[in-house]
């Protein structure tokens, strides 16, 4: 079996052309980036505003938890049957699945900002939008990033399933392999998806360390700064 798997990886044309591994990886990353970016444009502002005003917070958390129960396969198939084959329906399904974790992250991050800091900002005469953008959003960064990471993994996994409804990407190897009982092809595809997910997770964790404000930031250069956490008694 391992030998057959290695043969599959070494087969001619496996590393070039439209159905080669690099092309499939790029397709998969492309769908993922598109869905996560569209989802973020919708989810992050809505989550931040709801977190700031605290109106509708229960609805946001409830919807995010309820959507977790939706079977991804069913959503994909239903949207494709209703909207037709192509890129639109699977992308819509992926965006739908990317929204809840990012919405919950933005909401809980902003709502969980230190109330003392928010009050101090208000006392200094900051306007509401300044409080949101300059105090609450920076405080929310770690939870927002956790939401983005979870959404990304969810989308990578669901994009694999979406090969069943005709989408390209790495799921093709698994679905096409299954339909002709080509086990090495299925296994090869599964291994590449697994490695891709872990690599993407590590890259996002690394990026997260770079953009997180405050003392948790990974410092590339030593800059003497007085952080809020150090300043607190």
């Amino acid at each position: 079996m391992i030998g057959q798997l290695l043969d599959w990886f070494a087969a001619p044309g496996r590393w070039s052309g439209g159905t080669g591994i690099p092309a499939r990886v790029l397709e998969h990353l492309g769908y993922t980036l598109l869905a996560v970016a569209l989802g973020a444009v919708i989810a992050l502002p809505v989550g931040a505003v709801v977190g700031h005003t605290r109106r509708g917070g229960l609805a946001v958390v409830g919807a995010a938890n309820g959507l977790r129960a939706l079977p991804e396969l069913g959503v994909l198939v239903l949207l494709v049957l209703l909207l037709g084959l192509g890129l639109l329906a699977p992308t819509l399904a992926l965006v739908l699945l990317a929204i809840p974790p990012m919405l919950a992250g933005a909401y809980s991050g902003v709502a969980g900002a230190d109330p003392g800091a928010v009050d101090a900002a208000r006392g200094m005469g900051m306007r509401e939008h300044q409080i949101l953008l300059q105090v609450e959003v920076p405080a929310a960064v770690p939870l927002v990033l956790a939401g983005v990471r979870f959404a990304t993994l969810q989308v990578i996994a669901t994009a694999t399933i979406a090969a069943f409804v005709g989408l390209g990407g790495l799921g093709r190897y698994i679905i096409d392999g299954f339909s002709v009982r080509d086990f090495p092809q299925m296994l090869g595809g599964a291994l590449i998806v697994a490695v891709l997910s872990i690599v993407v997770e590590l890259v996002l964790q690394g990026l997260g360390c770079l953009v997180t404000p405050g003392p948790d930031r990974l410092r590339l250069r030593r800059v003497p700064t007085l952080t809020t956490r150090e300043a607190r008694p």
Binding site: I156, I161, A190, S197, I198
Partner: peptide, 9 residues
């Protein structure tokens, strides 16, 4: 982190 379909396969 590993997608479900990959793990099942």
């Amino acid at each position: 982190t590993i997608p479900s379909l990959a793990l099942i396969v």
